[in-house]
Simulated scan of single mutants.
Amino acid sequence: MKILILGCGWLAESFAIDMIHQGHEVWASTTQNEKYHRLNANGIFSFIIDFDRENFPKRIELPAHFDVVLNSVPASQKNSLSVLENRFSNITCFLGRITWRKQIFLSSIGIYPDKDGLFVESYSDQAELSPKLLLAEQKMLRLTNTVIYRLGGLFGKNRIFAKYFCDRICTTGEQPANFVHIDDVVPLIVAALFNKLQWPVYNVVAPLHPKKKDVIYASAKKYGLALPIAFEPGVNFQKIVSGELLQTELRYQFILPDPLQF
């Protein structure tokens, strides 16, 4: 299998290494010289490209066809709509020079509003969806054979939830955790390669949703980290994002279904 990765961040790099170990051919883009050399050293055909550049390169030598494109270029909330419009227009232009059997675009459950409720993929009030994430998703869905994975809060490896609250005040402790572990995300991406999915958009979230406060206590104890200075009241909306659609369709059993295990 021939795989192209756009935006080879820490999740995509883990996926790439797994695919290399399974004997697949992997090409991957990065914006960093250090990562370019590391990827190449691991047997990945790496190339440097910045989809935000005004003088966007017109030509990079790639195979004409890929079995899979894993697109993990982010639609970051810190960027303006105009920057994201340019970024994903450049990606569309870049992908126009190749063909593929399936593209998986990694988005985020941050597209849903921060309010009480159970959120599933059919939620369609566009006025409440994040305009930045929605822009990116809509641009990618215009491309052929594309599936979107909306990832929950992603943890694993050096990403430990309690680390972000050491010796700080936590005001979100009563909110439900809509998290997922990288050890489940990578297999769910692999599963998408070998299964014909029925829908264009899926949430990728662990099935259990403990309070964030309890996840902090559990991960601080597990990894020997300091607790927050205090838990104080904040905006504690009860937002739960369901990943049941993908789990049911793939008949997938989560390796780490409970963020208390992360």
Rank of each mutant, 00 (worst) to 15 (best):
G156S: 08
F94P: 10
F161H: 04
L208Y: 04
D114P: 03
R142Q: 15
T144M: 10
S72D: 08
N71Q: 12
R159G: 03
F161Y: 11
F165W: 05
G152F: 08
R142S: 14
G117A: 02
P74L: 01
T171C: 05
F105Y: 15
N86R: 11
N203K: 07
R150G: 04
G152V: 01
L81H: 14
M140R: 02
K132R: 15
R168S: 14
S72T: 11
P200W: 12
N195F: 13
S76L: 03
R101C: 14
D183S: 01
F88Y: 12
P207Q: 04
V205M: 04
K157G: 05
S130G: 07
V68G: 02
L188G: 07
N145C: 12
N178E: 13
I160R: 14
K196S: 06
Q126I: 05
I111C: 03
I169C: 09
E85Y: 06
I148D: 00
C170Y: 10
L95K: 04
V201K: 02
V83A: 10
L151Y: 08
E85D: 15
S76D: 06
E121K: 00
I182H: 10
P74I: 08
P131E: 03
K157C: 04
T99K: 05
L118M: 11
L129G: 04
I182D: 09
V68A: 03
R150M: 08
N71E: 14
P207E: 02
C93Q: 15
R168M: 14
F179A: 05
H181L: 07
S80G: 11
L133D: 05
I182W: 08
V190K: 13
L118W: 13
V186K: 07
N71M: 10
Y123I: 04
